[in-house]
Design a binder for these strands. Sequence first.
DNA 1: GCATTTACTTAACGGTGTTAACTTAACGAC
DNA 2: GTCGTTAAGTTAACACCGTTAAGTAAATGC
Lengths: 210, 210
Amino acid sequence: MPPKPKTEAERQQLRTLIIDAARDLFVTRGVEAVTMREIAKRIGYSATSIYLHFADKEAVLRAILDVDMLALATSLNTILQIEDPVERMQALGYGYADFALSFPNHYRLMFMAERIPCDPEKSSLQKNNAEQDAYFLLKTVVNDVYLAGRFKEELQDVDLIAQVIWAGVHGVCSLEINMASDKWVNWADISARLQLMQTVLIRGLLREST
Amino acid sequence: MPPKPKTEAERQQLRTLIIDAARDLFVTRGVEAVTMREIAKRIGYSATSIYLHFADKEAVLRAILDVDMLALATSLNTILQIEDPVERMQALGYGYADFALSFPNHYRLMFMAERIPCDPEKSSLQKNNAEQDAYFLLKTVVNDVYLAGRFKEELQDVDLIAQVIWAGVHGVCSLEINMASDKWVNWADISARLQLMQTVLIRGLLREST
DNA sequence: GCATTTACTTAACGGTGTTAACTTAACGAC
DNA sequence: GTCGTTAAGTTAACACCGTTAAGTAAATGC
């Protein structure tokens, strides 16, 4: 029974209702395993109603990612309180890994699943805003270390450094998420792997810290 | 029109026919996007025939992975000819990355896609055989470096070292495969990222090479 | 020569994302 | 007040999916 015209606020509210229900299901059971009918049932609507707010299933996923990328960036921003730039950089790595390992399905959705490339043009997030863009936050933190003259002198490309740090932490986390139960490998403790990776990154990137 | 009894060899031949067709399709379009009917059409059979040789779609995927894990291990084995253990270790990293970046969809299937954990019990491959098990090859190569006394002295766990190296290279490759077209990040050259990762790993893990 | 088995096929089932067609409630105009 | 019109839903339906059941034809064992 459809009551009539909704305010923009009401429409937005329903949008986030859909997003939240979908995220819950996607995260616990995987995107492919969740059906539109199921999402709809959760919020007490019919499946087709979702199409009044989103073009298709992928649009729902995209909206979720938008929200969650922002949430990740926001939560990581707390590390900016740390004064020493190197400590700050390390804390960012641990914070990122903590998110990945605490919400593995979430992380898979955001950084491991096959995905349409994100385009800043089509996102509600602001690129190059540390509060909304986690990569920019990393880059900022790396830049601070750079400005403090702590990197080895041949390292002059802040993007490159940031991307290698990201790759290192992402590598540890994504292997853990996808392969931890794989019996081919005699896995060391995840915390030991993460810590060694961080140590290696620090030792490999910073000047000798006599 | 069914001609009658097939020899074991003929059955095996059809199995590999299915595997090859499925791999071709999986690799170019992704597992989810490929249908059983499509695989069957490729080889001129009906979809249901596949079920005479494989329990389900996942079993086909598993069989592909089995074959390809072996192929990867085999191809990487050539690096064993390199004499210096550190050079050998680096060559293994580059060889692995070369595979990942040359056959990204292939790599995604093997190491990035959500997957049922591999169990040595259920595989035709032999664990702990460097010719069939790429992880064991890595571990062997890392162990040689360890035995040569080249790692920092606090590093005593060969599995841990191997897993961090794997994570580093995997991190670079998987971010490239999934995110290279993502406009949020101003990506540095993939070869620069890979090389810096390798340098960082070497510098972070080996003793000072004075 | 005939039942059985093997290797296949077609038909069908339940479920999917999505679209089309329909329903009902609220609004603006008169 | 009533009468279109429109918004916000619904149900029905489509084409397709992985998979299973039932059917079919050819070669074998006896």
